[in-house]
Amino acid sequence: MVATLEDRLDQAVQQVGTTILGKERAIRLAVSCLLARGHLLIEDLPGMGKTTLAHALACCLGLQYQRIQFTSDLLPADILGAAVYERQRETFVFHPGPIFAQLILADEINRATPKTQSALLEAMEEGQVTIEGETRKLPEPFFVIATQNPAYQIGTFPLPESQLDRFLMRIELGYPDAQAERLLLEGEDRRDVLARLPVCLTPEQLREAQARVAGVHAAPPLLDYVQGLLAFSRQSSLFRGGLSPRAGLALLRAARAWALLHRRGHVLPEDVQAVLPAVVGHRLYPGEEHLEQTSADLVGRLRAAVTLPA
């Protein structure tokens, strides 16, 4: 029997799950983010498996993988690449930087200077880079997983709100539960597991899956619901400023990808709710009277406040 696209996606999720134990939801969000052609920001403490997740995704989906460790002395050219003079050929030859890969792990993005950050973020937005007057397309698919350490630290440049918006989703991995942690401790080295991961999807199949996300049906009642969420976020004093239209589009796109990943041809309110914290959490800021609330609380309130059309 020929495996369908959905089966392959399931298999990929399951395979990545063998390396990152007990984090199926985060993995599914990451895959949805990739399918929705968005970029992912993981905010977590060091050692929670961010790199492993990125690496495992690259392996299972058959993507070229590059890791860029962001530091305060990293320059845009270190990411994008530069033209270097070659004596034998007596000409400048472009040496592509690490950004010319399909899956990029931008580690500790908030350690680099804003200039370097924006070089990456512009590449993410445009899907191409311009170096010395020449525009070069980035490979397809192009997926950035950026990580950021949320703890207060000296010498970091937190991403401004407008740039946070470039990430379709922001997730936290969090500590594994006791059972998963036990398996982790009992099991073999993660590097060995990674090395054995099968490739579940070819790049063409991944592109096809990305194309199919746009075709997932969103019925009028569902759009009503999404609009209800947007409207509430704008009216309520819980938030300082509501969700933008771009956030609305992002929410719908992510919900479509989530629905596809769950083998549905149409979006359910549950799909929207599933991706809601990851999609809107970093786009909403608490209002004056609610400063002490966490983003998760706020999104929970938003979710509870908007009723579903019958």
Binding site: E43, L45, Y285, T294, S295
Partner: peptide, 14 residues
């Protein structure tokens, strides 16, 4: 675990 979600967060009070 619960993480502060952004740096503008104040520490949670009881």
């Amino acid at each position: 675990m619960r993480l502060p979600w952004s740096r503008r967060d104040r520490p949670r009070r009881a």
